[in-house]
Design a protein around this nucleic acid. Structure first.
Lengths: 199, 199
DNA sequence: CCTTGAATAGTCCATATTGACTATTCTAAA
DNA sequence: TTTAGAATAGTCAATATGGACTATTCAAGG
């Protein structure tokens, strides 16, 4: 599991206590994963039980006690194995967006377009944010890798949305024409007197 | 949650029993999600409790009984809401690969390259598979959307891996040179006699 | 000096997810 | 014809995840 790789790797770089790890992941590594605090503590507990990390309780002043975790030799071995796996494998990726697309035909094209435009705006915004990060970081730094990777995928998403919206525009036009024809037909079916009333 | 959207949407298209749904998702929709059977049954139970679907038990021959699920009006409303949300939102995406990249410097560049080459091969293979699917499907069909979307992201991944491997190649060369220099230096530090022995 | 809000450090309980299992029926080959 | 394996239909127990909570400390303003 990749949460494990992350935690072991961070502890390899430097021993840390739970909150430090959690804070680091939330703030500096927010593009990497969204590992939450309770999940992290759960994982640390398991790792300790497995002997991959050791805990040392301490307290500074009157603050709540802090359990500082340090990587053991076992943990280091596990880290290497997981890292190799991670670099080697290309696990299947899933996109939530695809589920919505599956049911695109259950909704008028015009409405779908409006909604997807909002999605596009959100992607654009995120892209702008990332572009800043990419510019700020030295190529070759680990943070750069993550940002650049995200940037590429967001650009892809942009392209994809553009393609999709173009298709949808065509479909919307077709639906409009059909609706128009249907209206004319039903109007023709109504007796002449009734029609006049409405005019 | 998008599993819910998927299940409601499928039941909107056609009433189905649990195993049918599960089979459909496993086989035809394998690019969409990897919703597992127990998760599906759990979800169906919840949806029934919430009144979004109704269950009707039946049996054909001597087979185990089948619970056939049908969408209710409540379920349909929920479906629409979730679909709108899904089309509108652009949730943050995370890539497992990034976690490995974070620790790339913990490993000699040469080894990392070998591993990443395997990843690349896997991506290439998947891409070939998808290209077939894209060619086989009518543009505009829902399946086409999914496949095309995946294709674009896999192409991005290919580009990304190429970029990364090029960088790593440079780093490997640098590391080689450094190792070489270090070897020379340590050889120079050894007294002359000892050095001769080794030759 | 007191209070309010952020930061620190972590826990609880409810929910979601899944590997492994049960149990029956069909199918096709030995 | 029997028997091994795939398909059908689902369940169980264990694990992972996350929203909401506790409890303390610090910093700054009124």
């Amino acid at each position: 599991m990749d949460h494990t790789l992350l935690v072991l790797g961070l502890l390899k770089l430097e021993e840390m206590h739970g909150y430090q790890l959690s804070d680091l992941i939330d703030k500096r590594l927010k593009y990497l994963t969204d590992l939450k605090k309770p999940t992290l503590y759960h994982l640390l507990g398991k790792l300790e039980q497995a002997g991959a990390v050791t805990q040392s309780v301490s307290r500074a002043g009157n603050r709540p006690e802090r359990r500082t975790y340090r990587l053991t030799a076992v943990g280091e071995k596990q880290f290497r194995a997981l890292l190799r796996q991670n670099l080697q494998d290309a696990p299947a990726a899933y996109f939530n967006d695809d589920i919505g697309l599956l049911f695109l035909s259950e909704m008028p094209a015009a409405e779908a377009r409006a909604l997807l435009e909002q999605k596009r705006a959100a992607v654009d915004a995120r892209l702008a944010e990332i572009a800043q990060g990419v510019a700020a970081h030295d190529a070759n730094s680990p943070a750069y890798y993550t940002l650049r990777h995200h940037q590429l995928h967001l650009l892809t998403e942009q392209t994809w949305l553009a393609e999709l919206l173009a298709q949808l525009k065509k479909r919307a036009v077709r639906e409009d024409i059909l609706a128009c024809l249907a209206a004319i037909e039903s109007a023709a079916a109504v007796p002449a007197k009734t029609r006049r009333r409405k005019i």
